[in-house]
Deep mutational scan, measured.
Amino acid sequence: RSTHNEMEKNRRAHLRLCLEKLKGLVPLGPESSRHTTLSLLTKAKLHIKKLE
């Protein structure tokens, strides 16, 4: 059980790190620190579409 908890903790930490990296790559506007994961991913998707 503790192994599972540790793996889950590591998974969440990795996900958080990846989202922070994404936040640095996507133009978010003036309220960049107030975005939810969903809004960050939505803006990333729109940004990628613009680049295509």
Rank of each mutant, 00 (worst) to 15 (best):
E20I: 01
K21W: 10
R11A: 08
K43C: 02
A13I: 01
R34K: 12
L15K: 01
H14E: 02
L22Q: 00
L40A: 06
G29S: 11
M7N: 09
N5Q: 14
S32E: 08
L40M: 09
K49G: 03
T3H: 06
K49N: 01
T36L: 13
M7I: 06
K50I: 04
L40Y: 03
M7K: 05
K49S: 06
A13T: 07
M7L: 10
S33W: 15
A13V: 04
L25I: 06
E8N: 14
E6W: 06
K49P: 08
E6I: 09
K9T: 07
T42V: 05
K49E: 03
S39W: 09
P27F: 07
T36P: 12
E8C: 06
K9P: 07
K43V: 02
N5H: 08
R1G: 06
K9N: 11
N5K: 11
P27V: 08
S39L: 02
P27N: 10
L25Y: 02
E20H: 07
I48M: 11
A13R: 07
K21V: 01
E52C: 15
L28V: 05
M7D: 08
L17P: 07
R12K: 12
L38T: 10
T42H: 10
H35S: 13
R34P: 06
E8S: 05
P30K: 08
C18I: 14
C18P: 06
C18G: 05
H4E: 11
N5M: 13
K9H: 03
L41C: 05
S2K: 05
K21E: 01
K9F: 02
G29N: 14
K43N: 04
K50W: 06
S32T: 04
G29C: 12
N10K: 07
L15G: 04
K23H: 01
S33F: 15
H4K: 11
L38Q: 12
L38C: 14
L19C: 04
I48F: 12
L41G: 01
L17H: 13
N10T: 09
K45C: 03
T36N: 13
V26E: 00
M7V: 07
A13G: 11
T3Y: 07
L19P: 00
L19E: 00
K43W: 08
K49C: 04
L19N: 03
T42E: 08
T3S: 08
S33G: 11
G29P: 09
L51I: 01
A44Y: 02
L25R: 02
T37C: 15
L41Y: 06
S32I: 10
L15A: 07
T42A: 13
H4G: 14
N5L: 11
K49W: 03
A44I: 07
E6H: 12
T37V: 15
R34W: 10
L41H: 00
K50Q: 05
K23D: 00
A44E: 00
H47R: 07
K23E: 01
R34I: 10
T42D: 12
K50A: 04
L38H: 08
L25P: 01
S33R: 11
E6K: 12
K50T: 05
E6N: 13
N10R: 04
L46H: 15
K9Q: 07
T42L: 09
S2C: 03
K49Q: 03
T3A: 09
R11M: 06
L25H: 00
K45A: 04
E8M: 05
V26I: 14
H47F: 15
L15T: 05
L51E: 00
P27H: 14
S39I: 00
T42Y: 03
E20M: 04
